[in-house]
């Protein structure tokens, strides 16, 4: 008689098992503040169908979510809300910054718009585009699943050494330049006539 257990038991690491479970049921927290939010809704609905990747359960309570998708520009008044929602999400949690605005402020380089949420909350993945197509967001989600699978641990040890902000620190060179008068467009280098015969 052969061993009845051999076909029914397989061994794995606890981490890998947990990651496998986690990555296939990410529950997004849709922090949709602007036009990117519409694309996020399109991604979640039947045509693009985020459900195929196990991430269709959008919950509007941060307590029930583990993946924050920041979709849209975040203004000064909204940032404390964003931070509070991020802090309210239970561990383990991840964050996708979706669209040019959430990543960098996009074209809204004004006094009221935060120049990238990654300056103030930790971001795992950036999705460029204005707005990113649903396919891009789905690609990001698959990438997120890879990240969870390869770096995740049951106890969340991998988060512990991320002690720095993911984004740029304010007051870099460009900030200093912005606080003074901006360069006129026609003086920018790309607007200069091409140098003929330079090569």
């Amino acid at each position: 008689m052969s061993n009845p257990l051999s076909d029914n038991v397989f061994l794995t690491q606890l981490d890998a098992a947990a990651n496998w479970a986690r990555k296939n049921s990410l529950w997004p927290m849709p922090f949709a503040t602007a036009c990117c939010g519409i694309e996020l809704m399109a991604t979640a609905s039947s045509r693009f169908d985020l459900a195929r990747f196990g991430a269709e359960v959008m919950r509007f309570s941060p307590r029930q979510c583990d993946l924050m998708i920041v979709a849209g520009r975040v203004v000064m008044k909204m940032l404390p809300v964003l931070q509070r929602i991020w802090l309210q999400m239970p561990e383990p949690k991840w964050c996708i910054s979706m669209g040019a605005c959430a990543c960098t402020g996009g074209v809204f380089d004004t006094y009221a718009v935060v120049q990238g949420v990654d300056r103030f909350i930790p971001v795992d993945l950036y999705v460029p585009g204005c707005p990113p197509r649903p396919e891009q967001l789905i690609a990001a989600l698959i990438e997120m699943q890879k990240i969870v699978q390869t770096t995740g641990t049951v106890t969340g040890r991998e988060f512990r050494d991320r002690t720095r902000a993911t984004g740029p620190v304010p007051l870099e060179l460009d900030e200093i330049r912005r606080s003074r008068e901006a360069t006129f467009v026609d003086q920018l280098e790309i607007f200069q006539p091409p140098k003929i015969g330079a090569n």
Partner: peptide, 26 residues
């Protein structure tokens, strides 16, 4: 008063004036 012409378009750094939350502490 942000729409006054003597207020710079990019503000005076108010948009950077927030605490930073890192992954380790959240």
């Amino acid at each position: 008063y942000p729409l006054r012409k003597d207020y710079p378009l990019k503000g005076r750094g108010e948009r950077h004036n927030f605490p930073v939350i890192t992954r380790a502490e959240s």
